[in-house]
Design a protein around this nucleic acid. Structure first.
Lengths: 217, 217
DNA sequence: TGAGATGGTGGATATTTTTTCACTTATATC
DNA sequence: GATATAAGTGAAAAAATATCCACCATCTCA
C-alpha cells in the first residue's frame, strides 16, 4: 500500500508519534532536527516532504506545529508512561512460559477512566489472555473469556486466589492452594478434576492472579 | 477543588478541547479569538491567563500552539466521530428511563484496539451499566457485573436475546421473549421468577441487547 | 559516467505566533 | 464614590517557526 520508509524517514516518523503522545502537540522542525541530529531545519523539511509524498503525514503550510499523522492508530496511542497498559499474551508451543510477557501478541494502551472504573487500577504487570476451558463455569468464567491477570509468582499468590495458569499448552483459570509442598489447582466445576503439581513442575506455570473477566456475547 | 469558570472562560476551554480532538494540535490565540469572537489576541491571552491561574490549562511561554489541558480526560478524549465511545448510565429515581442516555453518569472514549479486540465493534449506541441482581448467575452474569449494552427497542430484540432492562429501579439482565403480546423476562436462576409485562408497561423498560460482560474480581 | 534519489549544511527571508503596552467599558462590591 | 474583576480593542515589538535558495556528499542504477 504505502511505500516503505527509509531508516532516516522512519526515525523521524517515530519521533513525531512519540512527541505527539508525550506533548499532546506536534513538534516543530527544529525539535525534530534536535531529536534526530539534523542542524538545519531545511534538512528536516525535506524528510517531511518525503513522508508527505508517501502519505505518512499531512502538513498545513505556514502553520506552526501542524504535522498530522495519517495513521489514526499512531495518533491515538496515548503516552505509555501516563496510562495503564495491558499486554496481551498468547501461548504458542515454542514459548517458554516464563517469557510470555516478552513475546506478547500485542499491547493495549487503555483509557484510564474506562479501566479504572471497571477494573480498578491495573498496571504494567497486567496481562490479558483467554480462558482455555470451562473448568470455572460454575463460578462465572467460561471458555474463551478474556482474563485480566495481575502477573505474580506462585509464591505471592494467596491461598484461595483465583489464578491463571498454563498447564501444558492450555491456559486455565483455577482456585489456587499450596499445601504439603504441592500446588493445587481446583476447578469450580466437578466435571473437571483438581490437579496437583510439584512447585517447579515444568508442566505447570502460574501466571498470576485474575483480577478481571470480560466476555463477548 | 478547581474554582469555577466564567461563561466566557468556559466557552474558550470547551473550544480548546474541541479543537484538540478535531485537529490533533492546540489552537493559536488567533484561532481561539476567531472562534469565540475576540478580535485581539491580547483579549484571548488574558482569558488563558485566567484558565491557567485556575489550573485548567498549562501554557508553555513563547511556543506556538502550546496549550495543554490539565484534565487528562479531556486531553485524552479522541475525536468522537472516529472512535467508539461508551456512555455510562446510572439509574436514579428522577430519570425517565427513555432518557437514560441523555443524563449519563459519564462517557468513556475507549481505545479502539482494546474494545474491538475484546468486544467487537461497539458503536455510539453502546451503554455501560451494572447488573442489579443475581438472576443470571447460572449463566455467568452476577450482581454488580458491568454490562455492555447495545441500545435498542424491545421491537428490535430477537427472541432469546440477552437483554438489559429496567424493572422499577433495578437494572436486570434477562433472556427476552415476546409471545401473546407480552414481554417475558426469563432469569437463568430458578430462585428468581420470570416476569411478564405488557409492551409499554411503565414498570418495565428494555434498554437493549447485552453484548459484553465485565467483572472485577 | 551521468542522472536521480537520499541526506545533509548554512543562511536569509517570510510568515506566524506570542507577548507587551496603553486604553476602554461594563458590573459588582465594599 | 472608590476599587476590583471580567472582558475587550488596537497596535507594535519580540520571538518562534516555516520556507526558500545555493551548495555539497554519497549511493544506486541504467
Amino acid at each position: 500500500m504505502r511505500p516503505p520508509l527509509t531508516e532516516r524517514q522512519s526515525a523521524i516518523y517515530d519521533f513525531i508519534g512519540t512527541f505527539l503522545r508525550t506533548h499532546r502537540k506536534p513538534p516543530t522542525l527544529k525539535e525534530i532536527g534536535e531529536a534526530v541530529g539534523i542542524t538545519s531545519t531545511n534538512g528536516v523539511s525535506k524528510h517531511l516532504d518525503a513522508l508527505e509524498a508517501k502519505k505518512y503525514i499531512v502538513r498545513v503550510r505556514n502553520q506552526a506545529r501542524s504535522i498530522r499523522l495519517t495513521d489514526q492508530a499512531d495518533a491515538y496511542a496515548l503516552d505509555r508512561d501516563e496510562v495503564p497498559k495491558i499486554t496481551v499474551i498468547s501461548r504458542t508451543s515454542s514459548d517458554a512460559p516464563q517469557r510470555l510477557r516478552h513475546r506478547p501478541e500485542g499491547t493495549f494502551v487503555v483509557d484510564p477512566y474506562f479501566v479504572n472504573r471497571v477494573f480498578g487500577n491495573p498496571d504494567d504487570r497486567c496481562l490479558l489472555a483467554r480462558a482455555g476451558d470451562d473448568g470455572m463455569n460454575g463460578d462465572g468464567i467460561r471458555k474463551g473469556d478474556f482474563l485480566l491477570i495481575e502477573e505474580m509468582s506462585w509464591e505471592d499468590v494467596r491461598r484461595g486466589d483465583l489464578v491463571a495458569c498454563l498447564v501444558g499448552e492450555t491456559l486455565l483459570a483455577r482456585y489456587f492452594e499450596f499445601t504439603n509442598n504441592r500446588l493445587h489447582l481446583r476447578p469450580a466445576d466437578r466435571r473437571y478434576t483438581e490437579s496437583t503439581f510439584a512447585p517447579n513442575d515444568a508442566g505447570c506455570y502460574i501466571i498470576g492472579r485474575i483480577i478481571g473477566v470480560m466476555r463477548r456475547l
